[in-house]
């Protein structure tokens, strides 16, 4: 904490000279600001740093990669289908003659887009819904949360698949159907957090001061509930990308010529039995790496935020 000026002499701070050699209330131990402490905890978690780096790498790989590594991803070329790696195609070609490495970049773009967009939708909707329920309390809360209970009891993948039979052609559609059934968990989390926060002494203290409801929400409840939301976002991204993979594998992915990693694994069974390993493992590996990275980041963030609040 070098940004603070050195302590002025204790004697000048207090009207009366202190009894002992320390100020009456004791020195303030300099630990670190809350965010810095969380950041330090996060950086200390090596797996999390690896996760963050992996995620950054894949974002660059998918979005900047195609600018450097030009490939043809629009016109099929029957002459060069299913080539093994080598000879200008480091990861070979697929059944349409597209360069697999370039394909992974393009597919990654959509996978990441859907993941981020779906988790964004889920988080925004869930946070609003959950905080309304938690703040309103009583019968409103009851009705809102029973609705969440009901939706949560419908198996996620099944209902999403059913919807995907009609709506899964574009990135937006896929993000919407995934988002529309994944806001439930954040809604529950945020509501629970708001309910516990409401009973915390510092919120009582603000009420005693005469704080308006809106101020309570903006200054105390939201900032304190934020860490739960942030942690959840990363898990949401991971789940959305996984769900996308399932949709693709079962054949309900994006419409040709758009493609996502999941769609590329749609024929994986045949590829494996025919020995076209380069069409399965590189793209699968990328998918696992990104999901793993998100999970690691989320886990580390949760620990980091926990430490900050638990520190006494």
């Amino acid at each position: 904490m070098a940004e603070y000026a050195p302590l002025p002499d204790v004697q000048t701070l207090h009207g009366t000279p202190p009894i002992g050699p320390t100020p009456e209330g004791g020195e303030v131990q300099v630990i670190a600001s809350g965010w810095k402490l969380a950041l330090r905890e996060f950086l200390d978690n090596r797996l999390a740093v690896v996760g963050a780096l992996v995620l950054i790498f894949f974002v660059l790989f998918c979005f900047v990669g195609p600018l450097v590594y030009h490939t043809n991803q629009t016109l099929t070329n029957p002459l060069i289908t299913d080539l093994p790696p080598g000879g200008g195609h480091p990861l070979g070609t697929d059944e349409n003659g597209f360069d697999e490495l370039g394909r992974i970049m393009v597919g990654g773009q959509t996978a990441l887009e859907v993941g981020f967009l779906a988790s964004f939708i889920a988080t925004v909707v869930g946070t609003l819904y959950g905080s309304i329920a938690g703040l309103a309390g009583g019968i409103v809360d009851n009705v809102l949360m029973r609705f969440v209970d009901i939706l949560l009891s419908i198996p996620f993948l099944l209902i999403v698949l059913v919807l995907a039979t009609k709506y899964s052609a574009t990135v937006l559609e896929e993000a919407l159907i995934l988002g529309s059934f994944s806001w439930l968990v954040p809604a529950r989390l945020v509501r629970g957090e708001v309910l516990t926060l409401r009973e915390r002494d510092f919120v009582y203290a603000a009420r005693v001061m005469g704080s308006r409801r809106s101020r309570l929400v903006v200054r105390h409840l939201i900032p304190n509930a934020l860490s739960v939301v942030i942690v959840n976002v990363t898990f949401q991204i991971a789940d959305a990308i996984l769900a996308l993979a399932y949709l693709g594998f079962l054949g309900f992915g994006l419409q040709y010529p758009s493609v996502s990693w999941g769609d590329m694994l749609g024929n994986a069974q045949n590829y494996v039995s025919e020995g076209y390993w380069w069409l399965v493992y590189p793209v699968g590996g990328c998918l696992v790496a990104v999901v793993l990275a998100c999970n690691l980041i989320g886990d580390a963030l949760r620990d980091a935020f926990d430490v900050r609040l638990r520190r006494r």
Binding site: L242, V288, L292, N295
Partner: peptide, 11 residues
């Protein structure tokens, strides 16, 4: 566990 957890089951 983390890797398994992050892996699509079909994969």
């Amino acid at each position: 566990n983390f890797i398994l957890y992050s892996m699509p089951s079909f994969f």
